[in-house]
Simulated assay, not measured.
Amino acid sequence: MRATDPRSITIRDVAREAGVSPAAVSKVLNNAYGVSDAMRERVTAATRKLGYRPKPAARAMRGRSYTIGVLLADVASPFAPMIVDGIQREIDDTGLQVLLGPGGASPERQQRSIEAMVDRQMDGLILIAPNVPTTWLETLAEEIPVVVIARHGTGRNYDSVVDDDVAGAELVVKHLSELGHEHITHIAHPIGKLRRPSVLSHTAREDGYCRAMTDRGLVPHVVTTSYTEEGGYTGAMAALRSERPPTAIFAGADVAAFGVLRAAAELGLDVPGDVSVVGYDNVAISGLPQISLTTVDQSGELTGSMSARLLRERLDGRDKPVTFSVSTRLVERRSTAAVRPAKGAP
């Protein structure tokens, strides 16, 4: 329902009336460069029809705000702070400030958070693992500089920083198969409404796992839960209680691997004697001696610093899309070992 009190009308109301994005409305109201006459007329007509008046603070803001908005799709992820630290290190001497926005899991919630940052006239956006529609993302990037992290597929209007997730998953399968494991379960995260090639990292990791298993003549076994400690626990319980339990489990994120370790402990299984466990991300806690998790390192700090560097280039005038791929490496620790021979085997 459209608001009738001019004091309660927002930029989003104007955007709906004009049939454009909130970012486009902000650009018109700020008399920004690159606004077409047709766009200006549509937005102006909508503001007049609705009686919209920018708040004094918004009217006073012109030019650069020297703020960067960072969308965190998952604030509970232990990998996200590593990215944010890299962003902050890159802009420490630039005068730019970082403002964080929790996005949540749903595309709708993420869109609202992004629009709120646009409404506050931030200079640019870094979106960590956004699952918003591709068309919406492209439209957003036409109005404001955007760098996307952990989303595959090349954007026409935005830059991307991605881990080579397919290669990372292949490193895991190679490591486990060389240890003699053939029955390797992968704990994955739902793909949601996204479709290849524009998918998030977890889907690319699942693709890499399946391809590496097939290439070695092994049968992929995927359990889809979530990249959370509880998701790893639930997935591991289902796999380890099956008629043919795996000898190794590859969790697509370290936080999920922690859940796998909890499940193995509750079932009285030895890691790695009864089941080997591998994670992904190499978060700090993975290296603790009590955990010693074999995992894939994708350098969260480098991911963050490169995203900030690309955004600075955008702010300086570059308009050609760039994709930066972060190399992966396997970090071997004590959670993996050679497969134990079956009882009675020579």
Rank of each mutant, 00 (worst) to 15 (best):
M1E: 14
D5A: 12
D5Q: 12
I11Q: 06
A15L: 09
A18M: 10
S21H: 11
N31C: 02
A38C: 00
V43E: 04
A46F: 04
R53F: 04
G63V: 07
G69N: 12
A76T: 15
V84S: 01
R89N: 11
Q97T: 13
P102D: 12
S106Y: 11
E108T: 10
R109F: 01
Q110L: 11
R112P: 02
V118H: 05
G124A: 04
V132T: 15
V132F: 03
T134G: 01
T135W: 04
W136V: 13
A141W: 06
A141F: 08
R151K: 14
N157P: 01
V161E: 04
V172M: 09
L179E: 02
L179D: 04
H183F: 08
P190T: 08
R196L: 14
R205K: 15
Y209E: 05
R211T: 11
R211E: 12
D215Q: 15
V219Q: 12
H221E: 14
G231N: 09
T234Y: 01
R244L: 01
P245H: 08
T247I: 02
F250C: 06
V255S: 06
G259Y: 01
A265P: 06
L267R: 00
Y280M: 08
G287S: 15
P289G: 03
S292E: 09
D297M: 07
D297A: 13
Q298N: 14
L302Y: 08
T303Q: 14
M306K: 08
A308W: 06
L311I: 07
E313K: 13
E313A: 14
D316N: 12
D316K: 05
D319E: 13
F324C: 04
L330V: 09
V331D: 07
A342T: 10
